[in-house]
Amino acid sequence: MPVETHFTLAGTVLLAFAIGAAFRFLPGADRGQGEAAFALPGKALIPLGVIAFCGFVAEGTINDWSAVYLREVTSATAAVASLGYFAFSITMIAVRTVADRLVERIGVVRFIRIATALTVLGFLLVVAVPVPGVAVAGFAVAGLGVSAMVPLAWSAAGRKQPEAPGRAIAAVAACGYLGFLAGPALIGPLSGGIGLPGRSRWSVPCW
């Protein structure tokens, strides 16, 4: 079966599910009608917006640049270069399955602090030791940290403004997606201008 046929079938199935969901799960009037189409975060939401922004910057950077970094800086093979984002995604999914229980046990503030430390540690590993295996491990560690940052920021935003949780979450989400769009676009020029001094000393031809 041609590839185009597979995409056509997949698109048709997804469209059918979307139409079914719209009629089955979204009955009644839209409760958001009449409100502003865009909401800026108020003073109480700015810290949560910053957390969401940083979380999305990290996620977007790894999404767009991990394979390029592994290929060009560590001289990894194409197959190994694909493992950076894979390792990041696996650890991120694993933590998200247990994040609620961890937050209940240690508290949201402590959880965010540990998550931030893990994210920074992951990126430090990637940059300080640009060897394919270590870099992939660094992306995995970063995934542990980034995993629940944004979901927790959105959840906290809804609790900050219980009278309008949707608007609060939308404002924090706008900050996050701004980071997702702006972060990777800034990394290219910065890396080109600043460079990575450890490249020539540590890089190896393959894993």
Rank of each mutant, 00 (worst) to 15 (best):
Y177P: 02
L144T: 05
M92R: 09
F111E: 07
G179C: 01
A117M: 14
G166D: 12
V146T: 09
L125D: 06
A170H: 08
V109H: 11
A78E: 14
V136S: 06
V127G: 02
L178M: 12
S89R: 07
L102V: 14
L181W: 00
V120D: 03
I112S: 03
S89A: 15
L124A: 13
V127K: 01
P151W: 07
L125W: 08
F180M: 15
G138S: 00
A137E: 04
W154C: 06
L144K: 04
L152Y: 03
R105T: 12
G138H: 00
L83I: 12
M149K: 02
V98G: 11
G133L: 13
G143T: 03
A153Q: 05
G84V: 13
E163R: 10
A94Q: 07
P130T: 04
A81R: 02
T97Q: 13
A78D: 13
A76W: 08
A185V: 15
A142I: 09
G176H: 07
F88S: 06
G107P: 06
A171C: 09
D100V: 13
L152A: 07
I114R: 08
I112V: 13
S89Q: 14
T77Q: 12
A99P: 05
A171V: 05
R101L: 08
Y177F: 14
F88H: 07
V108G: 08
G122P: 09
V126M: 05
R96L: 12
M92N: 08
I93F: 13
S155L: 04
Y177L: 06
K160A: 15
G143V: 03
V134L: 10
W154P: 00
A140R: 04
A174Y: 01
F139N: 06
A81Y: 03
T91Q: 10
F123A: 07
V131Y: 13
P151N: 10
V109F: 04
V141D: 08
A115V: 02
A168N: 04
E163K: 11
A170Q: 12
G179D: 00
A182L: 14
F86Y: 01
P162Q: 12
A153D: 03
G122D: 06
M92G: 07
E104L: 14
A137F: 12
A128W: 11
M149E: 14
A170G: 13
V120E: 02
R167S: 15
G138I: 01
L118N: 11
S155D: 08
I187C: 00
A117K: 07
F111K: 05
A164H: 15
